[in-house]
Each structure stands twice: as C-alpha cells, then as structure tokens.
C-alpha cells in the first residue's frame, strides 16, 4: 500500500535539523507489573508502541501510557516548535495531544495506522486548532463492513511495520533532502516564502522536493 509518487507540497528552508535528543527514560519500575516492561526497557526505536497503545486502549494501562508519553511528548513538542509554535504553547499542546491519546484510545486501530502516524494526526489537528482556530474535515471512517473479515492477527501490525520502514528510509536520506520533506510537514510556509528565504527559484525548490521523494521511494524499494 505504501506508495510515494512525485508528491509536492510547501516546504521551508533547506537546512540541517537537530539530532534525536536525549535517550528516552522509562518508568520501568512501574511498568514491570503490566507485562510491557520488557518492551519498555528497549530503546525508543524498537519499543512496541502498538502494544503499549493497545494496553492503554483495552486496559487503561497507566504504565503503558507513561512510556508513550516519555517517547512521544518531547517529539510532539519538537514538531510543534518546528511548525512555529512558541515553546510554552508547544509544551501545553503536547500535553493536550497526549491527553487526547488517552481519551480517544478507543479510536486507535493498529490495522489502520501505526502509533506514530496516529499521534502525528492528533498533533497536526491540535496545531490547526491552536494556530488557525480552524479544523480539518476527515474522510468517512473505513469500517470492516458486513461480509468483510477483520484483518488476520499477522496483518494487524502491518501498518506499524510499514511506518517503521518509512521512518528508516527517511533517516537514510541525505540531510538536505530529509529536511525538505520534514519542512513540508511543519507546514504553513509557501514555496514562495521558501524562494524568498533561500533565493532559489520556485522551479528549483519544487524539483528538489521531487528528487527527495523519488529517492525515498527508491529507499523503500517500491519503485
């Protein structure tokens, strides 16, 4: 299902982005009783966020929520700050996004989206609400209709796996190309503004984004 064609959207300046920040700290002591302790003890990249999310959804598991908070809240904050949100507001929004993760856990479906994807959509919508006082209409829900089987257990984590694969491919891009794609998601900056900032013609910026996405597609081996 993963398909990246020559998509184009607005982007910000071309620049090196920051590192991954401090390693995650988990409340391992609290987590050991919940049965997710082993997963929480691994590093952030390999931790099983979908399993944590399902424990939050199905059991209201607080240790699993704490693990998700420790990983995602600083990333939401960083993402929102890159989008132009002041630090204090980004911190508040990250708290709100994580509160929404708890409240709306029933909407999480690992067959449809990985945890990072799901958290991203909540953070994005929070940003639209906070900065533009607006909203983003959502497409109709895809239900497993009558006559359709829910996906096999083996397929349940396919979305999470694909998301990780895409994350690795993004990391493997040259810094300038990765930055272009990132900035497209930080949002609300036009190609025109980017052209003004960098002095590059619009056509050059667009073709560079296209090249970045083509490379990403090659990295994914889905040509």
């Amino acid at each position: 299902m993963l398909r990246i064609s020559g998509m184009m959207f607005d982007a910000g300046t071309i620049s090196q982005t920051g590192g991954r920040g401090e390693p995650d700290h988990y409340v391992a002591g609290k987590a050991t009783n919940s049965g997710v302790g082993r997963q929480l003890a691994t590093n952030g990249q390999e931790a099983d966020w979908a399993a944590c999310m399902l424990r939050v959804r199905d059991h209201g598991d607080r240790a699993a929520f704490a693990a998700l908070f420790n990983h995602f809240a600083p990333r939401i904050k960083g993402f929102l700050m890159k989008s132009g949100t002041p630090a204090a507001m980004a911190e508040d929004c990250a708290q709100d996004v994580m509160a929404t993760v708890w409240q709306k856990a029933h909407l999480f479906d690992p067959a449809k989206a990985g945890v990072a994807t799901w958290v991203f959509t909540i953070a994005r919508n929070r940003r639209i609400d906070a900065l533009r006082k607006s909203r983003r209409p959502e497409p109709e829900d895809l239900d497993w209709g009558p006559g359709e089987e829910a996906p096999d257990q083996a397929d349940v984590y396919a979305a999470e796996e694909e998301a990780r694969e895409l994350g690795r491919a993004l990391q493997a891009l040259p810094a300038a190309q990765k930055a272009l794609i990132e900035r497209a998601y930080w949002g609300d900056r036009s190609h025109g503004e980017l052209a003004a900032e960098t002095g590059l013609p619009l056509g050059t910026i667009k073709s560079r984004i296209r090249l970045a996405l083509e490379r990403l597609r090659r990295e994914m081996g889905r040509d």
């Binding site: 993963l2 607080r62 990333r75 993402f79 911190e91 708290q95 991203f120 994350g167």
Partner: peptide, 25 residues
C-alpha cells in the same frame, strides 16, 4: 500521513518541562 508520523517520530525531541509526566498522569 504515515510519512508525517515518521517525520514526527524521527524529529528532534525537545525535553518536556520538569514534572510534565507527573502532571500528565
């Protein structure tokens, strides 16, 4: 959207303020 999730997940993590986890819990 999946690519957006990857951007968020691999992006810079800015530490939350002191006591943020406690406040969230």
């Amino acid at each position: 959207e999946t690519l957006g999730g990857a951007v968020l997940d691999t992006g810079e993590a800015v530490p939350m303020g002191e006591g943020a986890l406690g406040a969230a819990m």
